[in-house]
C-alpha cells in the first residue's frame, strides 16, 4: 500500500489536495477578477476620452438610387 494511503497519513494527503484545489481556484478567480476590472476600466476610459463615443451623433448615409440625368424634369 502506498504511504499516502496509510491511516495516519491519508487525512493529511486529503487535506493537502483540498487546499491545493482551493488555492488553484482562488488564484484563477483573483487573476480573472483583475483582468475583468482592468478591461472595464480601459473601456470606461476610452469612452470618456472619445468625443464621438461620449456624445454619439446620429449618422445617416444618403444613397442615390437613380442617376442624376434620369431625374424628372431633366429629360
Amino acid at each position: 500500500m502506498s504511504v499516502a494511503l496509510e491511516a495516519g497519513v491519508a487525512i493529511y494527503v486529503a487535506m493537502a489536495v483540498a487546499l491545493a484545489v482551493w488555492i488553484g481556484i482562488f488564484v484563477y478567480l483573483w487573476r480573472l477578477d483583475a483582468q475583468a476590472s482592468a478591461l472595464k476600466r480601459e473601456l470606461e476610459r476610452e469612452q470618456s476620452e472619445d468625443p464621438v463615443e461620449r456624445a454619439p451623433a446620429p449618422r445617416a448615409t444618403v444613397t442615390r438610387v437613380r442617376p442624376a440625368s434620369s431625374e424628372p424634369g431633366e429629360g
Binding site: 491519508a10 487525512i11 487535506m15 483540498a18 482562488f26 483573483w30
Partner: peptide
C-alpha cells in the same frame, strides 16, 4: 476582502480535516 475569503476558506479546509472530530459510524 477577497484575500480574507481566500484565507478563510483555506482555514475551513484545514479545520474540516484537522479540527472537526470523526463522526460516529462514518469515520472520516
Amino acid at each position: 476582502g477577497k484575500l480574507l475569503i481566500g484565507l478563510w476558506l483555506a482555514g475551513v479546509a484545514i479545520a474540516m480535516f484537522l479540527v472537526v472530530p470523526q463522526y460516529e459510524g462514518l469515520g472520516n
